[in-house]
């Protein structure tokens, strides 16, 4: 790595490696492909949209690890952050 590279390089390759690894492990661990994730995401949007208006751009769905309450350590968990624009309560009334 040259002198100039040290200044102009945006980030180190070590942290790039770590981020790539984290991303690839999410799907490895859940045994779930990016295509499947996209399908899950679309289905969730469809279901939630029946009751409330959501911000599909700001939607974040991912599979992460979480500590289980049982003794079997880390388990995959579906994490979803769904920003709501407006709640359509009137649809629920009878």
């Amino acid at each position: 790595m040259g002198f100039m590279d040290a200044f102009f390089r945006r980030r180190s390759s070590g942290s790039t490696a770590k981020d790539r690894l984290k991303f690839v492990l999410v799907s490895d661990r859940a045994n779930c492909s990016p295509e499947t994730m996209e399908m899950i995401k679309n289905d969730i949007i469809a279901v939630i949209s029946k009751y409330m208006e959501i911000d599909t751009q700001g939607l974040d769905i991912q599979i992460t690890q979480t500590q289980s309450e049982g003794a079997n350590g880390n388990v995959p968990a579906l994490y979803a952050n769904i920003p709501i624009k407006e709640v359509k309560f009137h649809q629920n009334k009878n």
Binding site: M1, R11, S12, S13, G14, S15, A17, K18, L21, K22, L25, Q65, N74
Partner: peptide
């Protein structure tokens, strides 16, 4: 030396991922 200049994942990075 590579860890120090950020071109290799550190032991902590590896532990963070594999837990």
């Amino acid at each position: 030396d590579m860890v120090k200049r950020g071109d290799m994942m550190s032991v902590d990075d590896v532990l963070d991922i594999l837990a």
